[in-house]
């Protein structure tokens, strides 16, 4: 428990900053909707977007979402929210494991009467709490920000659905980060590598959107697992991708524990 609380304390400041950033993104993002949702204007926006080249649409994450509805607009914003939350989760997962070696405190911590697995469990638990808090703040922030523009449109359920998908993505990247930190003996580069991996999958998802005929590759990028457009249309998260996410998480978790227990620590 002492390691858990130490990690909670260590991440407190940065978590607050991430939360503030997220709230800012929500407020700034949704306030744009206010100017766009003036009657008459919103249709023009849809037309404007439709006139844009497909690649540009893909980068903006617009696709075929209806920007004139608040849930459609939020769906576009969701891409950026997911990006931010997963970067937080990935870096947190990687750093929380790697920092003991990076800061050379492993020689302090791991000569205490604990096993390496005990350390991992405490740290992952602390990271999980961080991820849950950011997800909670994002959920509440989204509900409040969207509500004020909803004009009676019932969006709460859509938002909670997307937040569920977001949580799975966060967990996935958190564990991916911890696996990178545990499997590789590169404590200084673990967070960087995880972010790189994240950007790569993000890039793949953009490429899939641009090309329009690479749907078969969707399994390669978690950003496509719970795509706002598909989720909002279906009204549920895809069971297949949930199972795939779960399998990847289990894999990353096993990689984290086995990798960290087997290798020499960098001291």
């Amino acid at each position: 428990m002492n390691i858990f609380w130490r990690e909670m304390k260590a991440q407190r400041k940065s978590l607050i900053i991430w939360c503030v950033g997220m709230v800012f993104l929500l407020i700034a993002g949704m306030s744009k909707y206010a100017t766009l949702s003036v009657p008459g204007e919103s249709q023009t926006l849809n037309e404007l977007m439709a006139d844009m080249p497909k690649s540009l649409q893909a980068i903006f994450g617009v696709g075929s979402l209806d920007l004139s509805t608040v849930s459609g607009y939020y769906g576009v914003l969701f891409l950026y929210i997911a990006m931010m939350a997963t970067i937080h989760a990935g870096m947190l997962g990687a750093t929380i494991i790697a920092k003991e070696e990076r800061d050379k405190t492993a020689e302090f911590l791991l000569v205490k009467p604990i096993t390496r697995s005990m350390m991992l469990t405490s740290k992952l638990a602390a990271a999980l709490v961080g991820v849950v808090i950011l997800n909670g703040v994002t959920s509440i922030g989204s509900l409040m920000a969207v509500q004020s523009y909803s004009n009676g449109e019932n969006v709460n359920q859509d938002i909670m659905l997307l937040m569920g998908g977001l949580f799975i993505l966060q967990l996935l990247f958190m564990l991916l980060g911890s696996a990178v930190a545990s499997l590789l003996k590169l404590p200084k580069r673990a967070a960087g590598l995880t972010s790189g991996l994240l950007l790569l999958t993000f890039f793949i998802s953009v490429v899939i959107d641009i090309s329009g005929n690479l749907d078969a590759l969707k399994f390669l990028t978690p950003f496509k697992y719970f795509d706002a457009k598909t989720v909002l249309e279906a009204g549920s998260l895809s069971m297949g991708y949930m199972l795939l996410s779960l399998a990847l998480m289990v894999l990353a978790l096993v990689g984290t524990y086995v990798g960290y227990n087997k290798r020499d620590l960098k001291v």
């Binding site: 130490r6 800061d103 050379k104 405190t105 020689e107 000569v111 009467p113 604990i114 005990m118």
Partner: peptide, 29 residues
């Protein structure tokens, strides 16, 4: 794990968590 309950170790280079007071670190230890 069991062995380390009764070992005290002083590493050659001492690096500790930044931003921690001496007493915080000692209590943590």
């Amino acid at each position: 794990q069991e062995i380390k309950k009764e070992i005290g170790y002083l590493p050659s280079e001492v690096f500790y968590y930044d931003n921690m007071k001496v007493k915080d670190l000692l209590h943590y230890s």
